[in-house]
């Protein structure tokens, strides 16, 4: 009985902690890491530094938003599947509510001259955000010849054909498996 109560308390706290993290990170992703570390490792001692490294490794190698990966991982560690649900809902809920509110505002003011002008400027700038994301990811990657070919091929296919992006990702993954497995055999 007591442990049941305790678990409910931990789950509520997981929810609140991750809601706070969701509320205070802009852009998401790794911007969240310092906050998660401060709250979850240092303050609550829910998981260790080693767990954080495991979590990063898993997030890097599984699909989906980093924020969700992290919340699910920590929640599960602390309080099982229920904990995972609480932390994940917590990290997503502030965004959901804020965007719903912003959506109403956006649609109400979209036809305003000044808002429209601001968005014409912003539209020109979104390309900058995406370009910078490409540069950042590109710097982090350990490039190889095949990697370069894959990047160029994916780029060309996406620009010049109607082929679904998902097939490009799957094909690149299969090439990766073939290359890596055959290299190991040579040794």
């Amino acid at each position: 009985m007591k442990t049941q109560k305790n678990k409910a308390r931990v789950c509520a706290e997981l929810f609140l902690r991750f809601a706070r993290i969701g509320l205070f990170t802009f852009g998401g992703g790794y911007a969240m890491l310092p906050l998660i570390h401060a709250d979850v490792v240092e303050k609550k001692k829910w998981v260790s530094d080693d767990d954080m490294i495991d979590m990063l490794a898993i997030s890097e190698s599984t699909p989906g938003p980093f924020a969700i990966n992290a919340a699910t991982f920590v929640g599960r560690r602390v309080a099982g599947v229920l904990g995972a649900v609480c932390a994940t809902v917590g990290v997503a809920l502030p965004s959901l509510l804020i965007i719903i509110a912003v959506s109403f505002a956006f649609n109400a003011f979209r036809d305003n001259l000044w808002v429209d002008c601001a968005f014409r400027g912003i539209r020109a700038g979104v390309f900058v955000l995406i370009t910078n994301a490409v540069i950042k990811l590109g710097k982090k990657l350990d490039w190889s010849l095949i990697g370069g070919v894959l990047a160029l091929a994916a780029f060309a296919i996406a620009v010049f054909t109607e082929l679904s992006v998902i097939y490009v990702i799957l094909a690149a993954g299969i090439v990766g498996i073939c290359v890596r497995l055959s290299k190991k055999e040579e040794k």
Binding site: V134, L137, G138, L141, W143, I146, G147, G148, L150, A151, L152, A153, A154, F155, A156, A158, V165, V168, I169, A171, A172, G173, I174, V175, G176, I177, V179
Partner: peptide, 9 residues
């Protein structure tokens, strides 16, 4: 294989 392709995408 996926990482460089994603950058291209």
């Amino acid at each position: 294989g996926v990482r460089p392709a994603v950058i291209g995408l």
